[in-house]
Structures are given as C-alpha cells and as structure tokens.
C-alpha cells in the first residue's frame, strides 16, 4: 500500500508497489502467504515434508473436505450455512451399499442414486430455510441429528465392506487411487471458481447474500439461489463421503467424524476469506485454507508435536484469519489498497 501523496516513481519500485496493492486486494492473499510460510517452515524443520509420500498424505487428507468447503463457500456467500453436510457424507456410502447389496442396483446408478438422495436432503434443507423461514443453522442442525438417526438405525452402527461391483477401476478413480481425490478436488475448485466469479449463478449467489432484499427487487429469485446452493453442498458432501469410503476401503458410520468434515470445511472457507455474513468469499481461498489446516496437522506430526495442541493452533488460525479479514476488508472499503 502506498502512502497517500507519494509520487509514483517510474520503474521497479512503483511497479512492485502496484503489484503489492493488487495482491493485497485479493482475498486469498493472506492465506496464500500463510500457506507458503508453512511449507517453508515445515520443510526446514523436517526434510520429509516435501516428499511425494507425505504430499500424498496431505492431498488425501485435504481433498474430500476441500470439495465440501467449495460447496460451503457458495452457501456462506449466499448467506446461509449447513452443519448437516458431514452426516450426508457419512450416509452416502451406506446409501450406495444398500442400493447395491439389498436392491441389486448396478454400481454407477447406485452412486448416482446416493448423490441424488443427497441433493434431495439439500432441497429439504433449502425449502425449510427459505419457505418456512427457519434459520439455516437450526434447519441443518435438525437435519444433522435426523440423518445421524437414519444412519445408525439402518446400519446398526456397523461398518461394512465396499460392495464388490464398485471395486476395481471405479474405486480407484473415485478415491482409492493415490492422486484421484486430489484431481477431483482441483477439478471442482477450478470449475466452481469460474462459476462463482464468471457466471450468473455466482453473481446471483453473491447478490443473495450481500443484499437479499435488493436482489429480490432486481428480480433475482433469492430463495431459488439459496436452495440450489444447499443442494450443491449436500451433493459435494455425499461425493466426499464416497471418496473417503473408497480410499479407506470400508464403509464406516464414522466417516467424516460426525461434525469433523463440516467444521473443517467451514474453517477452511473462513480461513480462506469467506465472510459468514454472506456476500463475499472465494473458492481458491477455501482450497488454500484447507491446505493450511492439513499442513498444520501433518507438519506437527512430522516434527513430533503431539496431535493435541493441533486444535489449539486451528482455533488460533480461525480467529487470526477472521481478525485479519475484518482488517483487510476495512482497508479495501476505505479504498486505500
């Protein structure tokens, strides 16, 4: 940021300053700096950090939750939240298992069916929130317990094996392969970054969260936009759950750890610069936020810090990034950067 009143000198200094100003204006800027800093620090502390084995560990820990975080970004930007998505992730592999093993549905339709049911869950979340005016936190909290009950009742809380028909290529491509989940994650991030920044849906999502009344006055169907984003989150949640099941080669009621996927995804979105109040957020930031969280966990393991203080660090990371966001958005608003 240049001090007001300084004359821009021609050449390198002015250019650097302009580049810096453009950089600070990006919402992803702060989290990118943190991510790079962590890479440098952990690599210096442990030479194992940047090995391909370890990077794969990080990628596999990051990717499914990052996909959920992309959906969470859309929903937060449109002004709502979903805390039930982790339970959708846990339920989806069971839905696939029920369809295949109890009803003889072939593998691919069974997977699509699981995603479709997840979309229906999102639809219900969205309709209860927009039509019946229940705050989305409460709606999805109820949905969380409801799905938990369905999951435990139907599965009797026992893990099951991945059904035979999906084994082989399908399982490899959908999560078991070394880099499969990361590839999906990068694809989702790339596509939905464009959706948020360069399409009508993205623009209307921002409008719905930024100024719901104004968006309605401009003829935007705010409820429809929100419902669509609820469905998006749920489908991503189901996809993430299926990928996890394929990777660990078992269908387990603890996939997603109850609230872990949900809270980690929200944390990633928030650390990445998405405002809980709606109207602003970035998909790339959420991916970076997810990497930061995964690197912290992995890096502390490598350098021998116990897992317990990790949550302390995560908590501080969320608070610091929110404070930084408040500060940066004030800077942006006053037009200094």
């Amino acid at each position: 940021m240049s001090v007001a009143g300084t004359v821009p000198k021609p050449g390198g200094a002015a250019l650097a300053r302009r580049a810096w100003a453009a950089f600070v204006r990006r919402r992803e800027a702060s989290v990118l700096v943190v991510a790079i800093g962590l890479v440098v620090y952990f690599q210096a502390a442990s030479p194992l950090f940047l090995t391909s084995d370890n990077l794969r560990n990080i990628a596999q820990a990051t990717a499914p939750t990052a996909i959920v975080a992309v959906g969470i970004v859309f929903l937060l930007v449109s002004g709502e939240i979903d805390v039930s998505v982790g339970m959708v992730a846990a339920l989806a592999p069971y839905l696939m298992h029920y369809a295949i093993d109890f009803y003889g549905v072939p593998a691919v339709p069974a997977i699509l069916l699981a995603l479709l049911i997840a979309a229906a869950v999102g639809l219900v979340n969205g309709l209860i929130t927009t039509r019946l005016k229940v705050p989305s936190f409460v709606t999805t909290l109820g949905m969380f317990y409801l799905l938990y009950g369905v999951l435990l009742t139907t599965s009797r809380a026992y893990p099951v094996a991945v059904p035979e028909p999906v084994k082989g290529d399908l399982q490899t491509w959908l999560g078991a392969g070394d880099w499969a989940s990361l590839c999906w994650c990068l694809l989702v991030v790339a596509v939905f970054h464009v959706v948020l920044t360069r399409t009508r849906w993205g623009l209307h999502t921002i409008s719905a969260g930024g100024n719901p009344l104004g968006a309605t006055e401009a003829g935007i169907r705010v409820s429809r936009v929100k419902v669509g984003n609820f469905m998006l989150v749920s489908v991503f949640g189901a996809f993430a759950g299926l990928m996890e099941a394929f990777r660990i080669n078992s269908i387990d009621p603890n996939i997603g750890g109850g609230t872990r996927i949900t809270f980690t995804a929200i944390a990633a979105a928030v650390i990445g610069g998405t405002a809980l109040a709606g109207g602003s957020g970035t998909v790339i930031g959420a991916l970076l936020g997810m990497f930061v969280l995964a690197m912290l966990q992995n890096g502390f393991n490598l350098i021998g810090v116990s897992a317990n203080p990790f949550f302390l660090i995560q908590g501080i990371a969320i608070l610091v990034s929110m404070i930084a966001n408040q500060y940066l958005s004030r800077l942006r608003r006053t037009g200094r950067s």
């Binding site: 921002i206 930024g210 100024n211 006055e217 401009a218 109207g279 602003s280």
Partner: peptide, 13 residues
C-alpha cells in the same frame, strides 16, 4: 422497470 427507494444495489459487486 423500477428505481427503488433503497436502490437495490449489492455492495459487494
């Protein structure tokens, strides 16, 4: 078409 009293602008855009 309407110009609303509250202008219906989205600050974030």
């Amino acid at each position: 078409d309407t110009v609303y009293q509250d202008l219906a602008l989205v600050n974030e855009l």
